[in-house]
Nucleic acid binder design. Sequence first.
DNA 1: CTTGACGCTACAAATAATGTAGCGTAATTG
DNA 2: CAATTACGCTACATTATTTGTAGCGTCAAG
Lengths: 109, 109
Amino acid sequence: MPVKNIDKARGSTTGRPIMVLLDMLGKRWTLRIMWELRDHPLTFRDLQKQCGDISPTTLNSRLHELRDLAIIDHGAGGYHYTPIGEELGAQMTALDSWSRKWSDQLGAD
Amino acid sequence: MPVKNIDKARGSTTGRPIMVLLDMLGKRWTLRIMWELRDHPLTFRDLQKQCGDISPTTLNSRLHELRDLAIIDHGAGGYHYTPIGEELGAQMTALDSWSRKWSDQLGAD
DNA sequence: CTTGACGCTACAAATAATGTAGCGTAATTG
DNA sequence: CAATTACGCTACATTATTTGTAGCGTCAAG
């Protein structure tokens, strides 16, 4: 078993892909890391800086978990999305758009 | 201050909408709750059942937080998306599609 | 007036995240 | 070659978050 076991994540006894995904995304810092990686690879230390307050322990855990799930990879240049991961990362843009609209609406109350 | 303060969430000192959002979505059970609500309203107890292992304490916290952020609301019939929240909830579908493709790819290794 | 569903709250115990310090390796610089 | 720098981490004690169980107060139906 080299890498990638999708079937035993936190709450997901079923192994249903969506559950595994929600589980991973629901961990602290996961989405933030994915956000920071959206445009370009970043090194471990870059990620620490960008994320401000993340502890190296947690960062390391998340990076391992994301690698195990084949969402990101690590190579020269730093951590970056895998091809399939890229497609998930693209959804960050949608979240960003939504959040602006949301903010506008709330501000306009 | 009736409801909705977007500006002081966990790590988000900036109050940038995307950061507030990522912060909220990154809490355990938030995405799962949103997933379960995607099609129809659910009562507190329904949500407990659907989510399997969530503790009432945590469920209650998440529901409050999501209400404060104007993503969900509570009325007759149970908890449900607000109009703007609905648009975020719609992204759950995209995550689901992605997760299937992902799972297929990994399975096909 | 009992039963059931509802939306919770209390609280001790378990689990996860934090912050600081610093290690080992490899590539650069003087 | 010695010193410096950036890299990817690990250790570990402290603090924050989540869990699980129990049960409360309200309301509507039978």
